[in-house]
Structure formats: structure tokens, C-alpha cells
């Protein structure tokens, strides 16, 4: 049975969405899945809205077109909700995961998805990041939230991949903080 998961990332340039899209793809590879990860290329400037994409499949991925009907949408910055239609094209059984302190119910209303079968999830990724990493880097916690909300991965393969890849360039303290933020977001995300 072919299972293709298409993920669209919304963020502001500098928040690490491209890295997150890549980390998710690499984690999938470690689980012997097929994957693609690509940013949407255009003029890049810090703080501007950007998109990135990840595809994960249990069979080779042949398509190379844009993702128009994602199964999951991850929003790293809730101020984007007012200016970008993050729900655009989402599959009816898809899930939108937003970095916010709001409840899934409040978020659903804000997204205009009352009565929709699309699931809505919220997690305070920035809050978690400020406590663990001491700065607002919502990308790694959002990977944990994505994994939980979609059932894509358990938390262990993410932690194991982060340890491996971050081990090359970061201190143990930073690796531990990232692991803590992924694990906390995995546990704390609430899906409504």
C-alpha cells in the first residue's frame, strides 16, 4: 500500500523551516523511507513569509511538482495566519499544526474551519524553545508536534537523528536542549 505524506511548512525566513523540512526528510530516510525536501525559492530576506516542503513515502517518489494538497501544514509563526492562507488546498483528513498559545478550538475559528474535517493542532513551540534553548527557535519543537499530530514518527527516531546530525556541529548542551524541546512538543501538542 503506497503511503505518501506531503507536508507544507509556513514560516518567516530565519525561523529554521528549511532546516526542519530537511530534518524530517532525513529522519524518514533513517527509517528507510523515501523522501524529498525543498524550499520554495524566491527573493529571500529575514522575516519574510516563506514556504518549504517535505514528501515522505514508503515507495520511491517520482513526482517533482509543487505540493498543492498537503496532508499536513506546519505554521512556525502565528502572525502568518493573518496574511497567508495556510489551509489552502489541504486534504480533508489533513492536519494544520500551529505554533501558538491558543487552543485548537480558538485556532479552528480563526482559520475559519468550523465544521471542517481538517484537524487543527496547537503547541506553544516558542514558549518551549525559550525555556529549553533560551531563544525562540520554533523549528525543532514543531518537528515533535508534527510527528505526534500526524503519527508520522515516534519521538525516538527524531531524537536519534538530531543527536547524530547536531553532534557534528553543536555542544552537548544545545543538543540536549533541542531534544528536550522536541520531546516536550511531542507530548504537549493538543489536537482538536
Amino acid at each position: 500500500m503506497q503511503q505518501l505524506t506531503e507536508i507544507r511548512w509556513h514560516a518567516r525566513a530565519g525561523q529554521g523551516a528549511v532546516t526542519a523540512a530537511k530534518l524530517v526528510a532525513e529522519t524518514a530516510l533513517e527509517l528507510d523511507q523515501y523522501m524529498q525536501a525543498m524550499p520554495e525559492y524566491g527573493p529571500e530576506r529575514m522575516g519574510a513569509p516563506i514556504k518549504a516542503f517535505t514528501r515522505i513515502s514508503n515507495v520511491p517518489i517520482e513526482i517533482h511538482c509543487n505540493i498543492e494538497h498537503p496532508n499536513a501544514v506546519v505554521v512556525l509563526d502565528e502572525t502568518l495566519l493573518a496574511i497567508v492562507d495556510v489551509a489552502e488546498g489541504i486534504e480533508s483528513d489533513g492536519v494544520i499544526i500551529v505554533n501558538t498559545c491558543k487552543t485548537p478550538e480558538a485556532l479552528r475559528a480563526e482559520l475559519g474551519l468550523q465544521g471542517s474535517t481538517v484537524r487543527v493542532a496547537s503547541v506553544d513551540a516558542s514558549g518551549i524553545s525559550l525555556e529549553t534553548l533560551k531563544r525562540d527557535m520554533p523549528n525543532t519543537p514543531m518537528i515533535g508536534a508534527l510527528a505526534k499530530a500526524t503519527g508520522l514518527f515516534e519521538v525516538d527516531p527524531i531524537v536519534s537523528h538530531l543527536t547524530k546530525t547536531f553532534g557534528k556541529k553543536f555542544s552537548q548542551e544545545i543538543i540536549d536542549a533541542n531534544i528536550a524541546s522536541v520531546t516536550r512538543a511531542y507530548e504537549e501538542v493538543s489536537v482538536g
Binding site: L29, Q36, A37, H64
Partner: peptide, 12 residues
Amino acid sequence: LDGFITTHSIDR
């Protein structure tokens, strides 16, 4: 190789 599509996408 196709610009961006192949040059910049992460693939297996």
C-alpha cells in the same frame, strides 16, 4: 540536471 527541481531538492 534541472535547476532547483533537481539541483536543490533533497532526495534519497
